[in-house]
């Protein structure tokens, strides 16, 4: 078997045939910012935070296959600037009021913002009206915080086998729907142990009565940045992956 390698910011990174750029990077301990990507699920490519330059062209690292000899740029001022702007877009599109959100300190959107030294949202806010679904006794859905990454859609479909969630609408009106006649979570088979309930990178899907359990100072991103946390969690998964 020949050894395959790409370079990321000049560093040699080995990969296995069929791996995506982000899979190869993660296995080698190189962090590429991402939100909709989770190594446990089919690559998605919608948030565009993992945009890297491959041989001079912008690509999503989470969906683009690694090919021998690729020169990938990742941690550059230009790319991080782009990622900051994309993160800012996600902030103005929804209603992300961190101070009143139970996920604060454990939220990946927020953590990516911290990582990229995002100090403001820059763009004008959309302040959309979005529905909160508190119908279920144990799980709640606050669409204000949804970033449309479809991780819950994928988890519910591929792991839980329940298809509780889907994206609907179009363009800026795209929104998360619940698969029941009433459109309410209470009328689905979702349960608190479902993967879909725990995969949300932001505070859109939460288990009720567990908010603010961890004091400030002990939350995930209080002292560790998302590159460290993400690599620690995802390196093992990436190591196992044999490519998609």
């Amino acid at each position: 078997m020949t050894a395959h390698t790409i370079t990321i910011d000049g560093q040699q990174v080995p990969f296995i045939e069929g791996q995506t750029i982000i899979e190869a990077a993660t296995a080698a301990g190189v962090y590429i910012p991402h939100l909709c990507h989770n190594p446990e699920f089919t690559p998605h490519g919608s948030c565009k935070l993992c945009t890297v330059k491959v041989n001079g062209r912008n690509c999503s690292a989470c969906t683009f296959p690694a090919v021998d000899g690729q020169e990938v740029l990742n941690d550059t001022e230009e790319l991080n600037e782009t990622r900051r702007a994309i993160t800012q877009m996600l902030f103005v599109e929804g209603n992300h009021f961190c101070p009143s959100c139970e996920k604060s300190g454990n939220c990946q959107l927020q953590a990516v913002g911290y990582f990229l030294n995002m100090l403001d949202a820059h763009f004008p806010f959309f302040y959309p009206s979005r529905e909160v679904d508190a119908s279920h006794p144990e799980v709640m859905l606050d669409r204000d915080r949804c970033i449309l990454c479809e991780l819950c859609v994928r988890a519910s479909r591929d792991v839980d086998g329940k298809n509780v969630f889907a994206l609907s609408g179009r363009g800026i009106h795209t929104h998360l729907i619940v698969n029941s006649t009433s459109g309410k979570l209470a009328d689905t088979e979702i349960s608190v142990d479902d993967k879909a309930v725990h995969v949300c990178p932001v505070g859109a899907i939460l288990v009720k009565r567990t908010g603010f359990e961890v004091p400030i100072g002990q939350r995930i991103y209080d002292h560790q940045d998302i590159s460290e946390v993400s690599l620690a969690m995802e390196e093992s998964v990436a190591g196992e992956s044999h490519g998609g």
Binding site: F91, L119, D120, A121, Y127, P128, S129, R130
Partner: peptide, 18 residues
Amino acid sequence: VAVGACAINGGLPAMRNH
């Protein structure tokens, strides 16, 4: 200088916006 969440994104008062 915009200081704090409310100056930067409207913050808690902006929760009336919908």
